[in-house]
Design a protein around this nucleic acid. Structure first.
Lengths: 137, 137
DNA sequence: TCTTGACTTAGACAGAGTCCAATGTAGGAT
DNA sequence: ATCCTACATTGGACTCTGTCTAAGTCAAGA
């Protein structure tokens, strides 16, 4: 994530304080913040940053493929900076905690041709649900 | 789905015109309507039905396990009456069409113990994404 | 250092869903 | 058959996420 800003500048991004701060908040591979959480944390570093900018920046990072959008609960989307390693999610049904996980097997291959209905299937997202150790006790 | 109302009455549900109509709209195993679509169709049968009642009724059907909540796009949730046959979803990335599909293999078993982080894993949801034949042409 | 087009801002707006107090009614009791 | 009352419905206000816009700001190339 540290060279993210360089990569983005190479793609014509203007390097503003706001974008720097959003990238900094998303640094660390295993966070799954909502846009509002990102905004709150960013505002801690740069108090005058606006909600709109956070949404804009997150949207750009997603279309550039640098961050993944995850919606596990039908409420706010979460942003996952771990975009360069394929992974799936394990979600606690009680507290909402999310962990990145790596199932075995070729998930895409498990959809038989006769179940594809002529679709060109390109991707698969898996969400495991359960109770985390914390909530279980 | 036809004996749904009987089953629910057995569980102490009051059988109102509104609930009957919502159940009727969801009849048919392969629909995936949003709450607003359900409301529109229900209002066609019972014009004075309110949005709040549709939301209430859908929520009750979900907690009773008679209907599944599906959120494939981060926008409105969709309601899937095909709750008694395990299945997954195949979604067109362009038009949003949803099909019920049945992958081979035991999806739950594919999350190795060392990837469970102590969770009691109970369920798995899979969304395949691709382009439907209609949009591809 | 100047210039300019890209970026940011605040706040209005929109879509999806929830909540609440007032009103209505299903279905058991009489 | 009618009455009662706890449960259901209503509409409108409200919340939460997210988008849009017009005006102001600024990064970075000339």
């Amino acid at each position: 994530m540290s060279d993210l800003l360089e990569r983005l500048r190479g793609r014509g991004w203007r390097l503003t304080a706001q974008r720097r701060v959003v990238a900094e908040v998303l640094d660390g591979d295993h966070v799954h913040y909502t846009a509002d959480e990102v905004h709150a944390k960013a505002a801690h570093l740069l108090p005058e940053i606006s909600r709109a900018t956070v949404y804009n920046t997150l949207g750009e990072l997603v279309s550039l493929g640098e961050v993944l959008e995850v919606s596990t609960d039908g409420r706010a989307k979460r942003y996952d900076p771990n975009a360069h390693h394929a992974h799936q999610h394990l979600v606690c049904s009680r507290c909402g905690t999310i962990r990145d996980v790596h199932p075995s097997g070729d998930l895409l291959a498990e959809l038989p041709a006769e179940e594809r209905f002529g679709f060109q299937v390109a991707a698969v997202e898996v969400t495991y649900r359960g109770i985390c150790p914390n909530c279980a006790s």
